[in-house]
Amino acid sequence: MELIGTERESTEAIDGVHLAMLASGEAMSVQRFAVEPGASVPPHSHPHEQTGYLVAGTLTFLLDGEERELGPGDSYVLAGGESHGVENRGEDIVRGIDVFSPPRENPDWAE
Results as ranks from 00 to 15, higher is better:
residue 91 E to S: 15
residue 54 L to C: 02
residue 90 G to R: 03
residue 18 H to L: 15
residue 43 P to T: 09
residue 70 L to W: 02
residue 77 V to I: 12
residue 77 V to A: 15
residue 8 R to P: 03
residue 35 V to N: 02
residue 4 I to A: 11
residue 107 P to I: 15
residue 105 E to F: 05
residue 107 P to C: 12
residue 107 P to Y: 15
residue 51 T to N: 10
residue 38 G to C: 10
residue 51 T to G: 12
residue 75 S to K: 06
residue 11 T to P: 01
residue 82 E to T: 04
residue 96 G to V: 01
residue 56 A to G: 00
residue 91 E to D: 15
residue 90 G to Y: 03
residue 19 L to H: 12
residue 49 E to M: 01
residue 51 T to Y: 05
residue 111 E to L: 12
residue 74 D to P: 00
residue 32 R to K: 15
residue 29 S to T: 01
residue 88 N to K: 10
residue 101 S to H: 06
residue 61 F to T: 05
residue 96 G to I: 05
residue 43 P to E: 13
residue 95 R to H: 09
residue 29 S to H: 00
residue 6 T to D: 11
residue 59 L to I: 06
residue 58 T to N: 11
residue 18 H to Y: 11
residue 39 A to V: 10
residue 19 L to D: 04
residue 18 H to I: 03
residue 52 G to I: 00
residue 2 E to G: 06
residue 107 P to F: 14
residue 36 E to N: 12
residue 17 V to M: 12
residue 95 R to S: 14
residue 98 D to C: 08
residue 48 H to G: 03
residue 46 H to D: 02
residue 27 A to S: 14
residue 66 E to L: 05
residue 29 S to R: 04
residue 39 A to E: 08
residue 13 A to S: 12
residue 70 L to G: 03
residue 5 G to P: 09
residue 8 R to N: 10
residue 66 E to G: 07
residue 33 F to W: 09
residue 108 D to F: 06
